[in-house]
Design a binder for these strands. Structure first.
Lengths: 223, 223
DNA sequence: CGCGGCGTTGACGCATTTCAATCCTCGTGG
DNA sequence: CCACGAGGATTGAAATGCGTCAACGCCGCG
């Protein structure tokens, strides 16, 4: 989960071959898990294509999705010796894997990379603060509204008053587990938004925000 | 929010005077706020004495406490240009303030410090994953149990089967806002635990876990 | 054409919140 | 020393938002 500006930016014109040397590509099929929660953490990952979901599990199977990651996002910072989360592909995804050892060689060679990684972690921390507020204090309506706005912030939204089209590549189950709700509640609230003409649902994955500003207002709990 | 091993460890025998030069001490009175959510972020902080609470607010006043910090903990990583959280003293607290500019001089002088900061951020990220699971997926009972166990992990617990004494320096309101519950629910559940002989409540701030293991079991949702 | 997986909708139940009353506990002043 | 008051904590009763259970719909695939 790191945003834009892949880590390569801190290496700039420097030897990209060195970076390639330390990493290996891999492809993960839809639904395939490639990080096991609690497993010893040997690698960092950068998502180069497709999307992945990160999550933690309770012993009885309850699941909390802690984030979705896509192209350019960085994975594995939330890990010391073992991964604090599991990860699996959402649709087929391609990744760059950086073994910790290799990463260390890279940070020695390019000291600014270390700073870049910290920035990445900081950005992630800031996002998580907001998500904790969502999970701890927002109503179901507010959560779904926040989710929609979040999705449209991913895009570089042109005009906040104009309708925005967006697609939700993840199934309802994932949305629910991300928002700390059930699929039924998510479904009901999307239907309610539709009835209120706040959104239109073209297909299961394709939604248009008709009144982004109002949804944004709901998201902040200012109804 | 950084644990043990203050950042000084990465400087070791090196010039501590340099570090002192870049920082300034400050004391914050009980309940006084010293970081304003959303304000431009100019400083890092290290808690040197007492405790502080970190939180985010919704416009209508709902509050989510995102963490408690105490001696040695690091504050301000979850901030790029502006703070992603507010902070205020819980009881009177003393802090070390490091302006970003000074911190940058330090990381240039002691490159390992940058790595240390990343570690700190990673540790924090891992904790937050767990907290998101708590807020999104655990029941009230499980949340309170988790909170108790968390508190006792802060101590270096000797024997997990023996009773553990711990004090909760924060008011119920803070516990509730930390767990995403109401004070009433927190209170009721503590009473229930008492009735079940899982804990004993010596005073408002002083609680003994009579059966740490059982509480731990509840915390993981394995009841 | 029919089956299976996901999504929606409805009815009902329950955990937690909300509202409200009472209880501590501790500091203050008579 | 005790009465008193105020703020937080506890306890109880009622309300409610969301979850659970269950039926149904939609759609793609064999």
């Amino acid at each position: 989960m790191g945003r834009r500006l892949s880590i390569c930016n801190s290496i700039d014109d420097c030897d990209l071959a060195v970076l390639a040397n330390e990493s290996s590509r891999m492809t993960v099929a839809d639904g395939r898990s490639f990080i096991e929660e609690g497993a010893p953490a040997h690698d960092f990952f950068v998502v180069t294509g497709g999307r992945v979901k990160l999550f933690t599990l309770l012993p009885d199977g309850r699941r909390q999705i802690t984030g979705f990651a896509e192209g350019g996002d960085f994975l594995g910072l939330a890990a010391s010796t073992s991964y604090a989360f599991g990860a699996e592909a959402l649709g087929s995804a391609t990744l760059c894997r950086f073994p910790h050892a290799g990463m260390q060689r890279l940070t020695e060679r390019f000291p600014s990379l270390e700073h870049r990684l910290r920035e990445e972690a900081s950005r992630e921390l800031a996002l998580m603060q907001a998500r904790m507020t969502l999970l701890g204090r927002k109503t179901a309506r507010e959560r779904v509204a926040t989710f929609l706005i979040e999705r449209c912030t991913h895009l570089d939204r042109p005009d906040p008053t104009r309708p925005v089209e967006l697609d939700l590549p993840m199934p309802r189950t994932d949305i629910a587990d991300y928002l700390g709700l059930t699929i039924e509640t998510v479904s009901r609230i999307l239907s309610a938004f539709k009835k209120e003409k706040l959104i239109s649902i073209r297909s299961i994955t394709h939604i248009t925000l008709l009144m982004p500003e109002r949804i944004s207002t709901i998201a902040e709990g200012m109804e």
